[in-house]
């Protein structure tokens, strides 16, 4: 029983991490038809910026309490800025050339980890975090690490915020309309490119937050973390239906749980394979993903 509880919460924590990356990926693809292969790099930027700030380089930030919150805030802000820069400088000039656009995001996705390892080395660096979050708590006989809860809470907050944004604001309305028919949005007098930048900013912020809190989950940062996680985020996006937030949330949970349980009860590594099998099975039954629509 305690094993099941631990595996479930760890799976949910991992799923939360996938959701933080996949939500932005899904919105960006839904609205802009851009497969952003640099999204994992945005997560890495968030992770490294948080690690850098929490290691005492940013005045006021640190590894404990308010200092750590400030470091996470800083990491998220840097990731958001990087996402906006990416959209404005790389994606936007290439809108009429989708193939080059994809290659450019692949290039950024490769360049960022290379840059990170050039500056801070290819090896994993221990990730400082608050004492209070490094402990465990007892639940139904299991000792569950607290950082799982932090991840789940962060994903829940992001999911709620995105729902409110999409459902209650004019910008959110423009994004939902743009997912359906971008040209018609412009034909109503709306500059849809502003929504592009906004969606990149939101997606970058979520991914960077994932990187910042993911550091607690993994206990370390390394340059390849974001890229290896991106693969599972893509699986989540395809499973959930391109552009669907609820779909991404459901698929994140499914992928996280299947991976954890399969890795534990079969040979390690088989969990990753199980995820691919799950994807294939789902696409056979529902070719458009779990929901096939937004929000």
């Amino acid at each position: 029983m305690s094993t099941v509880v631990l595996l479930t919460l760890t799976g949910l924590g991992l799923g939360a991490l996938y959701f933080l990356v996949a939500s932005g990926l899904s919105l960006i693809f839904g609205l802009m038809d851009v497969l952003n292969f640099a999204h994992g790099a945005l997560m890495s930027i968030g992770a490294y910026a948080t690690w850098w700030a929490a290691s005492g380089h940013l005045p006021g930030a640190g590894s404990g309490g308010v200092g750590f919150a400030l470091a996470v805030l800083f990491g998220t802000a840097v990731g958001t800025a990087a996402a906006v820069l990416l959209e404005l400088a790389v994606i936007r000039p290439l809108y009429t050339r989708p193939r080059e656009q994809i290659l450019a995001t692949v290039g950024v996705g490769l360049a960022v980890p290379a840059l990170l390892s050039a500056i801070w080395g290819a090896d994993a660096r221990p990730f400082p975090g608050p004492e209070a979050l490094s402990g465990t708590f007892g639940l139904l006989g299991a000792e569950v690490p607290l950082n799982r809860l932090v991840l789940i809470a962060a994903a829940a907050v992001v999911l709620t915020a995105l729902h409110l944004f999409l459902g209650r604001t004019r910008h959110g309305l423009v994004v939902r309309a743009g997912v359906e028919d971008r040209a018609m949005v412009t034909a109503l007098g709306i500059d849809v490119r502003k929504a592009f930048t906004l969606v990149f900013a939101i997606g970058g912020a979520a991914a960077a937050l994932g990187g910042a809190i993911g550091g607690l989950y993994f206990g370390s940062v390394d340059p390849a973390q974001g890229t290896s996680l991106l693969i599972f985020a893509f699986v989540v996006v395809v499973m959930g239906g391109m552009g669907s937030l609820t779909g991404a949330a459901l698929a994140s949970v499914a992928v996280g749980l299947v991976q954890q349980f399969a890795n534990y009860y079969t040979t390690a590594g088989l969990g990753d394979l199980a995820v691919v099998v799950l994807l294939a099975a789902l696409l056979l039954v529902r070719p458009r993903g779990l929901t096939g629509r937004l929000a």
């Binding site: 309309a177 109503l188 937004l294």
Partner: peptide, 23 residues
């Protein structure tokens, strides 16, 4: 750009109606 032109006072009802079905 289309949106800037439209904002100068054009309303457009396209051939396929351009209605957002999910909204």
């Amino acid at each position: 750009a289309t949106h800037a032109l439209v904002r100068r006072g054009i309303g457009y009802a396209p051939e396929d109606r351009g209605v957002f079905a999910a909204l």
